[in-house]
């Protein structure tokens, strides 16, 4: 079942197109990566989903119903550019935002207690935000985003500003929210975290959708017949044996007698041919396919698009 469905969204600003025919679907309990270079149109799309701005064309559905103003109570949004009221006290601030999302005073109070306890920040409750460090403020912002238990969370660069320990803490919280049934749109440039936690992705570039699907499928789609072979024997003999049928992309000596090589298949050769060739000269310890990293896929896809434009 899809929680969010975006259909053929178009948005133009004076003189330039921000989004051209963008569609995507986020399923229940899914973490959805919304990727793209700076200025690609991600923030425009997020603002349309949040009903901060309206699309010129296209529709947004939440739970298969066209989205209404009142639905923002079911969405939690952590913008990339985010701040808090500096002069306001932490708890007061959390209460204010929770109530703006439609929680009653007692509901909000209960939820605040839960989250403050969970993040072990009860002692900050009466501190003014201006006295907090950036990381501390980020935690408050995260709490404010999830306080009203939205079914859809939109997190724009949620890890920026966090040290590795707190980034992990947030990552764990995101996974727990997912486990509890929330759907999460994650917009980030941190490709490692995309690989780690995203189930599906959309890659937008220059207002266009250039790549979309399940993360595992996309990585397979971008496979380039590259294998990592670990073996016992001489690298020199191994390299010679590959000859013109395979390309040695990378090699390293692990110890006196063991080496690791990244080999790409050329011509019509398959993995079987590679193993056969290698077995004749060295003793194979392991063979694994090297899938492209999200980082590589991102660069490749965007460059290809850029090339197409030129």
């Amino acid at each position: 079942m899809s929680v969010l469905r975006v259909e053929n969204i178009k948005k133009k600003y004076a003189g330039h197109t921000a989004l051209n025919n963008i569609s995507l679907e986020v399923k229940k309990g899914e973490i959805y990566g919304l990727l793209g270079p700076n200025g690609a149109g991600k923030t425009s799309l997020i603002r349309i989903i949040n009903q901060i701005t309206a699309a010129d064309e296209g529709k947004v559905y939440l739970d298969d119903r066209e989205i209404k103003r009142s639905d923002i109570a079911h969405i939690g949004y952590l913008p990339e550019e985010r701040g808090l009221y500096k002069k306001m006290k932490v708890r007061e601030q959390a209460m204010y935002f929770a109530r703006l999302k439609g929680l009653t005073k007692s509901e909000a109070s209960e939820k605040i207690d839960y989250w403050f306890k969970k993040f072990d920040i009860e002692s900050w409750a009466n501190k003014k935000v201006e006295t907090l460090s950036k990381g501390m403020a980020q935690k408050i912002q995260f709490i404010i985003t999830v306080l009203h238990e939205p079914k859809l969370l939109i997190l724009d660069e949620p890890f920026s500003g966090f040290d590795p320990i707190n980034a992990n803490l947030i990552k764990d919280e995101i996974l727990e929210l997912k486990k509890n049934g929330a759907s999460i749109i994650l917009s980030t440039h941190d490709m490692n975290s995309v690989e780690e936690i995203c189930d599906s992705i959309s890659l937008i570039d220059n207002a266009e959708m250039i790549l979309q699907g399940k993360l595992s499928d996309i990585r397979k789609q971008f496979r380039s017949d590259l294998y990592a072979i670990q073996f016992k024997g001489m690298m020199f003999g191994f390299a010679n044996a590959l000859f013109a049928d395979f390309a040695l992309e990378h090699s390293e000596q692990l110890d006196d007698n063991t080496a690791l090589a990244h080999v790409r298949l050329l011509k019509e050769n398959n993995l079987h041919d590679l193993i056969k060739t290698a077995m004749s000269v060295v003793e194979i310890e392991s063979v694994n396919e090297v899938l492209p990293s999200m980082n590589d896929i991102f660069i490749k896809a965007v460059n290809k698009e850029g090339g197409k434009d030129e």
Partner: peptide
Amino acid sequence: TSRIVEIVVSSVKP
């Protein structure tokens, strides 16, 4: 400038 407005307008109309 504190960028809080984006959080606020995701809850209320401008």
